[in-house]
Simulated assay, not measured.
Amino acid sequence: MALLRLLLLPVLTLLLVASTAWADKPNKIRLTNGEWAPYQGQTLPDYGAASALVTKAFEAVGIEVEFGFFPWNRAMVEVERGAWDGTFMWVLTPERERVFLPSDPLFTLQEVVFYSHDNPIGAQKPEDLKGKVMGALDSSAFGRQFAPLIDDGSIYVARVRNNQQLFEMLAMGRVDFVPELKTSGYDAVLQHLSEEQRKRIAHLESLAYPWSYHLLVSRQIEDGPYLVDAFNRGMAIIRENGTFEQIIGPYIRPKAIN
C-alpha cells in the first residue's frame, strides 16, 4: 500500500500542477472589430459572419469573446500596444507578422478588381492599370499585386475609412478601380449605391488574388501564445462538428453576383 502511494504521488502532483496552470489561463478575450460587411459590423446579426465564426471557435474551448468596434487603423493600434488582446480578420504581411502573433488561416477568399462601366478597364495584368487611381481602405493590404507600380508612382492610391466611401468614389469616377473581395464589394454596392449606380459597377476576374485571413493577437500580453493556440484548437473543433461550414460556407463560396 505504501508503495502504491509512492507511485501515485508523482502522478497526482502533475495533475494538480496542470489543473492549477489551466485555472490560471484566461477564459475571456477582448478583440477589436470594425465595419466590413458581411463579415464584420456592429449592427449585423452576430456582428457579421467572421465575428460569429471567431466567437464559436473560442466558445468551443471555453473562452468568452468581448468585441470593441473601432476604425480599422485604431483597431490595429489598440492591439499592437496591448490595450486589447487581438483583432481579426486580417491578411498576413511581414510587418504584421513582426508585430502580432498570427493564428492558423481561417479561410481563403478571392480579391477581384471593381470598376465602373462609365470608365471601363480591360486589364489582364497589373501593368495594364498604369496611370490609374486605385481606391483602398486604410490599413488594408488589398492591391498587393499593384505594390511595385504604386511604389514607383505608376498607380496612385486614394485611401478612405470604409467601404461606403470607397464605392461611392468609384461610382462618382473619383477612382478608377477598387481591389476588394467579391462578397464584401458587392455588399457595399447594394447597401450604399443607388439603383442606377449599381448597374454601372462590375468586376474583373482576370486580376483575382487569393487572401488567407487570420486572427492576430498582441505580442504585448502574457497569454498571447495560449490564446492563439486555443483559437486554433477551437477552429479545428468547429470545422469537425460542421459549425464552420454553417457560418462561413456561403461567404467562402458565394453565388455569382450581377
Rank of each mutant, 00 (worst) to 15 (best):
237 I>M: 02
103 S>M: 10
248 I>A: 05
64 E>R: 10
15 L>G: 04
46 D>R: 15
31 L>Q: 11
15 L>P: 01
227 L>I: 13
203 H>E: 08
85 D>L: 03
214 H>N: 13
92 L>C: 13
83 A>I: 08
246 Q>F: 12
239 R>K: 15
183 T>D: 05
194 S>G: 14
132 K>A: 08
256 A>K: 10
122 G>W: 06
96 R>F: 14
78 E>H: 02
176 D>W: 04
41 G>L: 10
241 N>P: 02
88 F>R: 09
243 T>Q: 13
136 A>Q: 09
223 D>P: 01
218 S>C: 05
198 R>C: 03
228 V>M: 09
11 V>R: 05
44 L>M: 15
69 F>Y: 11
185 G>R: 02
123 A>Q: 04
34 G>T: 10
242 G>C: 10
230 A>Y: 03
69 F>C: 03
111 E>P: 09
96 R>V: 14
34 G>C: 06
244 F>V: 07
165 Q>V: 00
121 I>F: 04
28 K>C: 06
47 Y>W: 14
125 K>A: 13
56 K>E: 15
164 Q>A: 05
53 L>V: 07
3 L>I: 13
54 V>P: 09
244 F>L: 07
37 A>M: 12
106 L>K: 04
56 K>F: 03
254 P>A: 06
180 E>I: 04
164 Q>P: 00
172 M>Q: 14
24 D>I: 00
158 A>L: 06
189 V>C: 01
23 A>R: 09
151 D>S: 08
109 L>E: 11
173 G>D: 08
146 F>I: 08
111 E>H: 05
222 E>G: 01
101 L>E: 11
4 L>P: 00
121 I>Q: 07
157 V>Y: 03
186 Y>G: 07
61 V>I: 07
139 S>F: 08
28 K>A: 15
240 E>T: 01
223 D>S: 14
30 R>M: 08
120 P>M: 04
115 Y>W: 01
115 Y>V: 02
133 V>C: 04
32 T>N: 11
43 T>P: 00
111 E>V: 07
137 L>I: 07
199 K>P: 00
219 R>E: 05
105 P>N: 13
86 G>K: 06
231 F>W: 07
238 I>N: 02
225 P>Q: 14
239 R>F: 02
58 F>Q: 06
179 P>E: 01
47 Y>R: 13
76 M>H: 08
253 R>L: 10
16 L>A: 07
